[in-house]
């Protein structure tokens, strides 16, 4: 069990501790802790999950139940940047399907997959709350609005062909 805790870094532990100050019992910080670890490591591995569960005095099963509920907790490795491609109604009306195919071709991945160079993971996302600028997507933390073929080409210029 000692190894489990030490597998979380001091920064991670400090950030989790800061969340613990605001909750009545440790497991209540589960989502925050998952997000913290993910922010450092990109995703939550089985080992990370067990370490977090142990630190929060909850079972791995319970934490897994939480982690797998939320779509932005990644239980599989993702690329350096996650592309959250909005497929909801306003973007769809504005032709997002075609743009998605464009990305798919450009990067050589389908939704749910990571490029071979590990730069991008393409994921579907629900309405990003920028429907007036549809179609939109997020790459990493950046929102890209009013997408069209040229913009997409530019954004992924360096990754075209799925390799770099």
């Amino acid at each position: 069990m000692v190894e489990l805790i030490s597998s979380l870094s001091n920064e991670e532990l400090a950030a989790i501790d800061a969340e613990l100050a605001h909750v009545p019992y440790k497991s209540a910080a589960a989502i925050d802790a998952l997000k913290i670890v993910q922010s450092f490591r990109g995703w939550v591995s089985d080992e990370s999950l067990k370490a977090i569960a142990h630190y929060l005095e909850m079972s791995a099963a319970e934490l897994e139940g939480i982690a797998t509920f939320y779509n932005l907790i990644y239980r599989q490795p993702v690329g350096d940047k996650v592309i959250l491609f909005c497929g909801s109604v306003s973007c769809w009306i504005k032709g997002c399907d075609g743009l998605r195919s464009q990305i798919t071709e450009l990067l050589g991945v389908r939704e749910g997959e990571t490029t071979a160079d590990n730069k991008y993971t393409l994921l579907p996302v629900t309405c990003l709350g920028a429907c007036d600028k549809a179609p939109v997507m997020m790459v990493g933390e950046d929102l890209h609005e009013d997408l069209d073929r040229q913009k997409i080409q530019k954004i992924f210029a360096s990754s075209a062909g799925g390799e770099s």
Binding site: S88, V89, S90, T126, C127, G129, A130, C131, D132
Partner: peptide, 11 residues
Amino acid sequence: DEMEPGTFKDR
């Protein structure tokens, strides 16, 4: 939590 499709006011 604004996530209703087509909703972009709280942002």
